[in-house]
Amino acid sequence: MTTELHKIAARILLLPALLVALGVMVKGYSDPGDGFSAGVIAALAIALQLMVFGPGELDRLPLIRYAPYAVFLGLIISLLTAFVPSVMGQTLFTHWPPAGDSATVFGTLEFITAVAFDVGVFLIVFGFGVGVLSSFARAEARIRTSEERAARSDKDNSGKREAGNST
């Protein structure tokens, strides 16, 4: 059912979608959206490629093969932002810079540890979406090939049996 039009649309949409995801995450502190939404948007962008080009596409896109590891990377980042303050004698989730202090600003992005935590959330959600969908796609492809092989060997076997019967 995949037409050329689908393929072109999917390709054209990939980069803008990832950019939107980045924007949603970075601007999360001043506008609607956060790491979670960004993660889902990015995962949907990848899912579109998957649907149009099939699971083989995963290996061609840079770094997407490692998306499942993003879940654990993200978890580690979030855990670090949460627990490192407790090592330094503060309560959990004490963000830096402290309330009221000015932070380094780059456009609408402020460099604060809460954003790092949000990046962790983004990685987890993105890895989860891509990981689950891609493993489904792979499993589906595997089942299909094994079914085809089974059908072929069935045919072979029946051929052999007939041959055996005749001798």
């Binding site: 502190y29 001043s30 609607p32 956060d34 978890l75 809460a114 935590f117 987890i124 959600v125 989860f128």
Partner: peptide, 30 residues
């Protein structure tokens, strides 16, 4: 807390610990 969007600030700062618990569940489910 350096934010203007209260939902994000709640998720990442005020109630950060809840979020942490939830994303841990997500990772384990994954």
């Amino acid at each position: 807390a350096h934010g203007y969007d209260i939902v994000t600030v709640i998720l990442a700062d005020f109630r950060g610990f809840d979020t942490l618990g939830e994303i841990t569940v997500v990772a384990i489910a994954f």
